[in-house]
Simulated scan of single mutants.
Amino acid sequence: MWIEIEIGASIQGISSTLVPMDIQMEPIDHGASGFFNRSHCQFMFRYDASPEEVLVDVVEVDWRVGVRGSFHYRADSLHESWEDISEFVRCYAASHPFKFILSFQFETLYAVRDEHGLRFVGPMPEG
């Protein structure tokens, strides 16, 4: 799964959301990577100093991406991984004002945070 977050978002803000979530994390060049202890779902976030277009092709937005993140999970831990990913999305939306899109392979939309708030638009992913 991919999360694309608008310009202005920071790795520090993402880290401040992740740290209370029972994770293992380490800094990487212009980002952070790690995994959730419950599900072992891996994540990686990267900050881009040159903002890019949103790659999701099923929705039009009027903002550019400043941070892009990915979540990688195994099919046998899909349910637990989805719980961790959706908890991160909810906590991030509650504590940071930035717009974002959560999708699978930039094709299937699962969550949108925009001027109307956070909405989950797709069902839980199936393995």
Rank of each mutant, 00 (worst) to 15 (best):
M44T: 01
H116V: 02
V19I: 01
G31E: 01
R119I: 00
V54Y: 03
P125N: 12
G69V: 05
Q42W: 06
I85W: 08
G69S: 03
S15D: 08
D29I: 02
M124W: 10
D29T: 01
Q24A: 08
N37Q: 12
N37F: 01
E115H: 15
F106C: 05
D62Q: 13
E87F: 04
E115P: 11
G66K: 04
S15Q: 12
E53D: 13
E107F: 00
E87W: 06
H79T: 07
Y92L: 06
S15A: 01
V67C: 10
C41F: 02
V54A: 02
D114L: 01
A9R: 11
D29R: 13
S81Y: 09
S81D: 14
A94W: 01
A32C: 13
V65E: 01
L55A: 04
F104P: 05
F104V: 03
F45K: 15
G31C: 02
I14P: 13
L109Q: 05
A49F: 08
A9W: 06
M1R: 08
I23G: 10
Q105W: 04
I5E: 07
G13K: 14
T108R: 12
F106I: 01
P20D: 08
F45T: 02
G69K: 06
R74G: 09
I28N: 10
G122L: 02
A75F: 03
D114Y: 04
Y47S: 07
W2K: 15
E115C: 11
C91F: 13
V67S: 08
H72S: 14
E83F: 12
S39T: 00
E52Y: 06
V54G: 11
E60K: 15
Y73C: 11
G117P: 07
V59E: 13
P123H: 11
M25F: 00
H79N: 10
P51I: 03
Q105H: 15
F45I: 07
D76F: 07
L102R: 10
T17E: 08
N37C: 07
H96G: 00
Y92W: 12
V65N: 07
I23Q: 10
P20G: 10
M21P: 15
V65S: 04
G66V: 02
C41E: 15
E60P: 05
T17P: 09
K99E: 09
F35A: 05
V65M: 02
V89T: 07
E80N: 14
I28V: 06
L18N: 15
R90N: 11
H40D: 11
F100A: 04
S15N: 14
I5W: 04
P97R: 09
F36N: 14
S81P: 15
I3R: 10
F100C: 02
L78D: 14
D84K: 11
S70Q: 10
S15L: 03
P27F: 03
C91H: 13
V121M: 02
F106P: 03
A32Y: 14
E53S: 13
H72C: 09
P51H: 08
M25W: 06
F104Y: 12
D22P: 08
V121S: 03
E107I: 00
M124K: 15
S95L: 00
K99D: 05
T108N: 08
Y92H: 13
I3S: 12
P123I: 00
A49M: 10
L118Y: 04
E6H: 07
Y47W: 08
I7V: 13
E107H: 06
V56D: 12
